[in-house]
Design a binder for these strands. Structure first.
Lengths: 336, 336
DNA sequence: TTGTAAGCGTTATCAT
DNA sequence: ATGATAACGCTTACAA
């Protein structure tokens, strides 16, 4: 690999002058600058980031540790957002995956330390509480799509309550008055928050308990969780007769669409359908297109990087308070 | 940050002895080794990879540049596979995304060079030819899910022809005799290869042209590509009356299922359905579960890392020959 | 405006 | 078995 010294020799100056040019130091005679730039070009010189790193004390590296046990594809957008923001800020994101086999969070954290990462982001694949190993205290840490139960670290999460509140109000505003909510497993944070938002909106519209219904689309059978969307949908259609169905996630909406199709009930025309996720191609593959609250993964990733840079600059990690909630937007199509 | 010297002082030895312990050099008195290990533990010493890198000549870093213009979620598995293999081989994968805005391949390549990556993997999000900038010649480069038209670099691609051949034979083996193939846009490599595999299998079974049909599910309207799966499916059912439908991707299968549902035609019972992708939760959300040829993204990622390590060790990049095809397996469920 | 010397944290070399 | 010393490629501090 070509070094700064080789460039210096080629240009006929001292290596320090080359360093100046590389670092955009203005105090270089234009004539020399041109000579040096030419030499850099000819030799194809690229600065050695590692060497630079040990002398300057910043690495410009941010570690991203992702819990990918359950591979929710859209959560990849968290990483894309993080990467874009890192790029904009002149940082490099080093991504590590937590895969069953061998790697544990502490190990991956050490990896980050060894690369002298300036901060670490821990990302989970669905909104949940996570307790990180103690070692994470040694570096500015930001949690994304998850949070520490003791609020030890700043956290970025989707505003699930707002999402449910918003979509419910949209349904109500369009005149729907008997909404069935096919919610996710109530063990999940998102399910709890959405229920709150859902009921809040209903209350504000004066909808009483006999005019809405909430069901769970997952049932625990022994140690297995099984999806009962179809039965639930049929049940709700028969016994509650809703004018709109709010689904816990887009995949639930797919099954609901199938049930409706089989009953010749037309989405939008005969019944409104709404959902959460805006999961990739799913909402568009359905006919009519599914109106669904998009989880702001990309934005969360961006915000996490911003936050970790802030914390590392201010060198404070503690007293983080409530997780920062990122607003969810409605991806509006034709299903209600 | 704790350095090797501080550990040395704490343990009462020279810093070189600490270096020996850190690098598992056996020529250290056990007594000293214990003292040093204790000091490392107490001080929380972590080696500085950057410093190590400038002295040793290897970085143990592999760059992964991914064309994420079209975000096919499952292609994330390429990265997961690459990351797992890198971890197993003691390498660190540095992932860079190609996002419209500003970053171009050459820039990201430079980023890799600056980190002194030992090799670079270029990954595309669907199987396609790609011409890389000339700069990639400077580092061992492997292409994954894409290939250089001039075979300049080793490439890892899914064996689309084998996939189509295999699934078609499976259909035929189960007795299906009138197969309709709703293929992807014929501009796409995968579509061309699959057509070849499909027809090969049919020929071997002596199926003649009037007993199969191939249709495209995308149509170009002006400068827009529109999905015509529904119309095509209805058309084929009406006019060709197939006993099985082979879909170009799982999302096509979803639409086909809807059409069949609306016509009260039962999948598996009345008609076989097969597909390509094994895309995340889709095949399982359908009822009956979709039997589909899985694209071996994870394995491709693993293989790409293996290959880039091989090439970097043997220092040869040229004369790569045909892309290496990774076998696709049938994810068998209940749809045929 | 430019260059010299020192230093970053590590490994390599060679002596002890 | 251990330790001085040099070296890696760069930046910082300071001098010219």
């Amino acid at each position: 690999m070509v070094t700064i010294k080789q460039v210096a020799q080629r240009a006929g100056v001292s290596f320090k002058t080359v360093s100046r040019v590389v670092n955009n130091d203005p105090t270089v005679k234009p004539e020399n600058r041109d000579k040096i730039l030419a030499a850099i070009e000819e030799l194809g010189y690229q600065p050695n980031i590692a060497a630079r790193m040990i002398r300057k004390k910043n690495s410009d590296i941010i570690g991203f540790i992702s819990d990918e046990i359950s591979t929710t594809p859209s959560s990849v957008d968290i990483i894309r957002g993080a990467q874009d923001m890192a790029w904009e800020k002149g940082k490099t994101l080093m991504v590590f995956n937590l895969n069953q086999k061998d790697a544990n969070p502490a190990q991956l954290f050490d990896e980050c330390t060894q690369h002298r990462a300036e901060g670490v982001i821990y990302g989970a694949m669905y909104h949940q509480p996570v307790s990180l190993p103690k070692s994470f205290e040694k570096l500015p840490t930001v949690m994304v799509n998850c949070f520490d139960p003791g609020q030890k670290y700043p956290a970025i999460v989707p505003d699930d309550e707002q999402a449910a509140y918003y979509v419910t109000r949209q349904l109500l505003a369009k005149g729907y008055r008997r909404i069935a909510f096919l919610n996710l497993n109530p063990d999940i944070i998102a399910a709890q928050l959405r229920l709150a938002g859902f009921e809040q909106a209903l209350t504000e519209y004066g909808i009483t308990e006999d005019n809405y219904i909430v069901k769970t689309i997952e049932q625990v059978k022994g140690d297995k969780v099984i999806d009962v969307t179809r039965d639930m949908t049929l049940d709700v259609l028969d016994n509650f007769k809703p004018d709109a169905i709010l689904c816990g996630k887009d995949l639930v909406a797919v099954r609901v669409y199938f049930v409706l199709e089989s009953l010749k009930i037309k989405v939008a025309e005969d019944i409104g359908v709404a959902s959460f996720d805006n999961w990739d191609a799913i909402p568009d593959i359905l006919v009519p297109g599914l109106s669904t609250m998009s989880l702001p993964y990309y934005e969360m990733g961006r915000r996490a990087v911003q936050k970790v840079i802030e914390t590392s600059e201010h060198k404070r990690n503690t007293q983080s308070g409530e997780p920062e909630k990122i607003t969810c937007l409605l991806a509006s199509r034709e299903s209600f």
